[in-house]
C-alpha cells in the first residue's frame, strides 16, 4: 500500500465518509471508491460491499480484486448525561460506535464528565433534528424525565434507528406508552422500544446497567434472537456429549 493511498483512506474515514479500498491481488494496485472513477463492475461491487458492510472478492478481466468497505462508525445517541451514560462512553468506541450525549442541563453535559463524547445541550427535539438518527444509529433515553425522554423517543420512532431503548420501570414505561400513543405512535411503533432497557443480567450498578444496554445494542446490530431459547446443536457422532441437563 502506498502511503499516499493510506493517507487518503484515513482522511475519508476521519471525515466519517463511507469509502471502499479496492486491491488487485496480483500486484497490489489500489483504488478508493467513490473518490475515484472505476470500471462499472468494480464500482458496483464497492457500492454493494458498503451496503452489506461485508468485504467481497470480484474478478475483472481475469484479475482478482479484494473489495474492502469502510463505513463510518455506528452511532449511539444517549439522552441524559447521567451516570449510566458516563459508564457507556468508554465502552462505545472499542465496540465500534461513536457516541453523542444530549442533555440541556448544562451541569450534566460537560466535557469533564463525558470526555471524548459529542455533547449537545439543545433540547432533545432540536438535538434529534440536528443529529438525524438513521439506520446505523441507536437511541437510548436515560433521564426518567418525560420532558426530555419523550421528544427524543418521538423523534427516534419517526426515524429508522436500528435500536431504541428507554430506561424506566415497567410502570414508568406503561405511562410513557400512553403518552407516545397520544403523539400518534401505534403498537407496532411502540414495540420497537426496548423497555426496560438492557439485557436482563440483574444489573445493579451504573456500569452493569451500561454493560446490559451495550450488550442489547450489539445484539440488535448483529440480529441475535435474544429472549428466545437457543437451539442446542446435536452432538456430532462419536463425540461424547456432556452435562447439558435435560
Amino acid at each position: 500500500m502506498r502511503a499516499e493511498i493510506l493517507a487518503r483512506l484515513q482522511a475519508e474515514r476521519a471525515a466519517q465518509r463511507p469509502v471502499v479500498l479496492l486491491t488487485r491481488l496480483s500486484d497490489g494496485e489500489q483504488h478508493l471508491w467513490p473518490q475515484e472513477a472505476l470500471p462499472a463492475m468494480l464500482a458496483e461491487a464497492a457500492r454493494a460491499a458498503l451496503g452489506a458492510e461485508k468485504a467481497a472478492n470480484v474478478m475483472l478481466d481475469g484479475e482478482a480484486w479484494f473489495v474492502h468497505p469502510h463505513n463510518p462508525p455506528l452511532r449511539i445517541i444517549v439522552v441524559g448525561a447521567v451516570h449510566i451514560a458516563q459508564a457507556m462512553a468508554p465502552m462505545a468506541a472499542p465496540l465500534g460506535f461513536s457516541m453523542a450525549v444530549v442533555d440541556p442541563r448544562r451541569a450534566f453535559a460537560t466535557e469533564e464528565r463525558l470526555p471524548g463524547v459529542t455533547l449537545s445541550t439543545d433540547w432533545p427535539d432540536e438535538a434529534m433534528v440536528a443529529l438525524k438518527p438513521d439506520i446505523r444509529t441507536a437511541v437510548v433515553t436515560l433521564t426518567h424525565d418525560p420532558k426530555l425522554d419523550d421528544p427524543a423517543l418521538d423523534a427516534a420512532l419517526r426515524s429508522e434507528a436500528f435500536y431504541i431503548g428507554a430506561l424506566g420501570s415497567r410502570r414508568t414505561h406503561a405511562k410513557r406508552v400512553a403518552r407516545l400513543k397520544d403523539l400518534g405512535h401505534d403498537d407496532a411503533a411502540i414495540a420497537r422500544i426496548h423497555a426496560p432497557v438492557g439485557l436482563d443480567i440483574a444489573a445493579v450498578t451504573a456500569v452493569e446497567i451500561a454493560l446490559s444496554v451495550m450488550a442489547e445494542i450489539v445484539a440488535a446490530r448483529r440480529g441475535a434472537a435474544l429472549g428466545q431459547p437457543r437451539p442446542i446443536p446435536a452432538p456430532e457422532q462419536g463425540r461424547v456429549s456432556i452435562g447439558i441437563g435435560a
Partner: peptide, 20 residues
C-alpha cells in the same frame, strides 16, 4: 458469526504511526 469488517482498533492508523 460476524460478517462486518469494522475493527475496534484502527490498524491503519497504527501502521501510519509506525511508518511516521
Amino acid at each position: 458469526m460476524s460478517t462486518d469488517t469494522t475493527q475496534s482498533e484502527d490498524i491503519l492508523a497504527i501502521a501510519a504511526r509506525w511508518k511516521a
